[in-house]
Design a protein around this nucleic acid. Structure first.
Lengths: 190, 190, 190, 190
DNA sequence: GATGAATGAGATTTCATTCAT
DNA sequence: TATGAATGAAATCTCATTCAT
């Protein structure tokens, strides 16, 4: 008896991400995805009930992975600024290394594929970031303003930074990274 | 024999923007656009040679309008910070009032519709912003780092801010605007 | 300007009926129908929103035509038996000449295509037959039993007769017709 | 190595009948049948070489069962009318209790699934009914006309009666049955 | 120029059948 | 034999574009 192959999910996701990065969300077809993944088109429907479900599942997976990686190595005992920088760097590195996911998530956000439910769940994943900001404010290191606004600033600037680095093709030196972080930190610090 | 009706361009653009904001770039069809614009599908092809051209033209138009409005009221005699804030506010207001265009531009950027040429031209429109940053640096008010990085920061943070405001539905008070600007200014200032 | 061509409905219906008679309801495809009708597959979707709608519409059309023709030449002044025979003959002739419709209606009845609504409407078309039976009972010419049962008997016997004639290929002589009618009449008469 | 499990045939047949009654012949898939039967899709192909064979086999089985039951309790010594009524009742009861088979047979008759051979064999099963009619004619109790026509009448009326009873949901009383039989008898009797 | 029906290539999806376990 | 994932041909349906009016 043949069992459902868990590696196929990864295979399909990788294929879809690659294609979206290349041709945009509006340019991918189920046929393209299956071909890229090296499986038959019909097989896609063994793993996902349709294109919508595939894209929603991939969206959720990308969001989760992205969050999961952010707090790697985070240690609450560590002083705030280095701990925060660690998270900031995790995010930056992840986004640069998985630029396809960044594009995919952005393209999805205003697409008809993502359901309200999926969107809702994605929102909830932000909780740890709010907690981190709250800690910085409690320690009087961060500006005492609406934490949503602070997060907005961090994420927005980071997004654009990642895109700029990706498209400019300019190598990202340690000093550039530090400059960028200080730019961000100057904005947030009390 | 009638002449091309200039108002139809606006009609078509407005329809396309509305639909992209609602259903995403991957969700719109020529049929949808014509219906929303209140004209026949065939008529679209009188004004645009095809879907690609329509989207490229709209993309270019949005970019141009967006830049044109940014420097409204800009007066080089004015001291830098208020002059800069004026531009910053122009951009913020425009993006909030024309949120559909923000979405559209974002969606386009990684779509196969936009040609390299269109992308190139869009890039060139950023020149006045570089000049503005250069002035701030010359006056030693802004950090003396890669101006592309500074612009990236400003635009990225602004984009996210606009989205947050739009989706949260929270009214934007004068004090919130000022807080946001100061956040941005603290990041940039020397 | 090209207008929707009313003859296309007839063209499509004729094609569908021909194919169902040949290959059964389970054997027809939208592609087959369009080819048989001499139009592009996409054109079918200009006239019907999908396969379901096409089949429901054809079902309704067949039912209506079948009923409409039944009372041709019916004259209430005429004595009951010849008036009744006239109707009976109308039905028999119509079904023999439009055998494809008989098959189609039968195939449809237990198919997932026909909606409850369509079924409902079809049911209502039987009213004139009930009225005719009621007249025969009022004149004490027909058995005074549940009129639904009488109609059931007439229609059931007729259906099978039509099939037998069609498949046996034996010519239907005037005398055979009369014999059949008398068989039916003997069953019904008081 | 296990042997073919005879109960599986019954399981498969039951599942197929249930589904055809619910969704029509055009609405069933091998997947549906296997799921309804509680077995794997692949297992269907252990018992039948394909969909066609499955349906032909079921068709033949239904026809055989239907005929076999008709003459239960038939005693040639018994006078004709009660003997005939006995057969008539056997058929009526069987069809009411196995309505799914009635639908299935009807649906099959004009489908491309049933082969000429299967159809042929089904035809031959009617022989005992012809013999019964011949006896009635020899005893000068039945009209002396083409026996095919008489059988057509009986079966057609019965079919419709069964459907009417099934769909109306009205309980079938002993008196209703008798009335129906007399209707039939009046038609046939010399 | 304006219309919208017509087109057919191509997208999504289904499903009978096969095959590895 | 039993399983159900895998397949790919074929079905349904969509949609950018054309064309007759």
């Amino acid at each position: 008896m043949k069992l459902k192959d868990d590696r196929k999910y990864a295979l399909i996701f990788r294929a879809a991400l690659k294609l979206v990065a290349k041709k945009g969300l509006s340019g991918i077809t189920m046929g393209d995805i299956s071909k890229e993944a090296g499986i038959a088109t019909g097989t896609l429907y063994v793993y996902f009930s349709g294109k919508d479900e595939l894209i929603n599942a991939l969206f959720a997976a990308c969001r989760e992975r992205s969050v999961a990686v952010s707090f790697k190595g985070y240690n609450p005992q560590q002083p705030f600024k280095p701990a925060f920088k660690n998270v900031w760097l995790n995010i930056l590195k992840y986004r640069l290394q998985h630029f396809e996911e960044v594009i995919f998530l952005e393209q999805c956000y205003h697409s008809p594929y993502i359901t309200a439910e999926t969107r809702e769940k994605a929102q909830q994943l932000a909780a740890p970031f709010y907690a981190l900001i709250a800690r910085g404010q409690a320690e009087q290191l961060l500006k005492n303003i609406d934490s949503a606004m602070l997060i907005t600033f961090i994420i927005g600037a980071m997004n654009e930074l990642v895109k700029q680095i990706h498209y400019s093709g300019i190598a990202l030196t340690r000093s550039k990274i530090n400059t960028s972080f200080e730019l961000c930190w100057d904005a947030l610090k009390a």
